[in-house]
Design a protein around this nucleic acid. Structure first.
Length: 298
DNA sequence: AACGCCGCCTGATCGC
DNA sequence: TGCGATCAGGCGGCGT
């Protein structure tokens, strides 16, 4: 499940591969992923445009493009991977995946592919998703005071609150559990009940967990080929998408580097790494929360 | 206004 | 072996 670190790693790898590339044709296989943008407008806007940049905001990918008409406004293309989305470049000759949602032809050699088996993600000209986002957790303006202000008025459990993208952008279900464990805060504690020291620890834990995950991801092979992926190199991916230049897999619990790194997520019944008490699973707002009942007392 | 809940989707897994 | 049920969950929209 892609959260901030996975999107950050993807953006770092993808940015140099798309920058400067022109879009010669646009194919929409699932109009649903365009959100409110009408398909004809999407095609008309992107055909002939050139990628100029790519950055991350929360879990969103924000592509900037230069339109063919130099006098026109720059284009902003907004991507979100949802639960199962992937974005990568594929050689022109390679077969498209079953759930390719949008394909951008980049000249004769390559295609930019956005695939998503569940179609929960988006690739759209609509920017409204960005407007709802809170502060970037790794930016300087995300301070303990900012976190405290966001938590102060809410009676919701802090775990649920952490999933609210307007509180802080980019924390998802996995890293919410991890950060709360790291901070020693119970996921069930009402947001407004956190004391200043707990808020300080949670603030630090959010940043620590995300930073560590990015560092791990950026040094690991993201093409599943067993070789280190180099951002400047063209890497062959054997599977599941043969021939992908760069392959981003939704690094779920089945991915080895994930399993080693996560301390509580999907570890129900396993001993806590700190105190050996069995990790518990709990359902909050229809989502799994994992925590140590001893290290994270209510 | 904050919050709970539903719908959107397919694939993996499990019980029979 | 096959098949239906269940689960996974980010997010927008809607109702209270």
């Amino acid at each position: 499940m892609p959260e901030l670190p996975e999107v950050e790693v993807l953006v770092r790898h993808l940015a140099p591969l798309v920058r400067g590339r022109g879009i010669s044709a646009v194919e929409i296989r699932r109009p649903r992923v365009l959100g409110p943008t009408p398909a004809p407008e999407f095609i008309r806007t992107l055909e002939g445009a050139t990628f100029t940049g790519l950055l991350r905001r929360g879990k969103y990918l924000v592509f900037s493009l230069r339109p063919p008409d130099r006098s026109a406004e720059p284009i902003m293309l907004v991507g979100h991977l949802g639960m199962t989305g992937r974005m990568y470049l594929l050689p022109r000759a390679a077969e498209l995946p079953k759930h390719a949602a949008v394909v951008l032809e980049l000249g004769r050699q390559h295609r930019f592919v956005y695939e998503d088996p569940r179609y929960f993600g988006r690739l759209t000209l609509d920017r409204t998703g960005l407007d709802r986002l809170g502060p970037e957790p790794l930016a300087d303006d995300f301070t303990p005071a900012v976190l405290a202000a966001g938590l102060r008025r809410s009676a919701q459990a802090v775990k649920i609150k952490l999933l609210d993208q307007s509180l802080v952008a980019g924390v998802g279900n996995i890293y919410a559990s991890e950060a709360l464990f790291q901070a020693g805060v119970s996921p069930r504690l009402a947001a407004r009940r956190l004391k200043a020291p707990q808020i300080d620890r949670l603030h630090a834990a959010i940043r620590e967990v995300l930073t560590t995950a990015i560092a791990a991801g950026s040094t690991l092979p993201l093409d599943f080929s067993g070789q280190a992926a180099k951002t400047s190199a063209i890497v062959e991916a054997p599977a599941p998408v043969r021939g992908a230049l760069f392959y981003y897999g939704t690094a779920g619990p089945d991915s080895p580097f994930y399993q080693e790194r996560l301390q509580v997520y999907d570890r129900r019944g396993e001993p806590c790494v700190r105190c050996a008490a069995p990790i518990r699973r709990l359902i909050q707002a229809a989502r799994s929360t994992f925590f140590c009942p001893r290290c994270q007392r209510a």
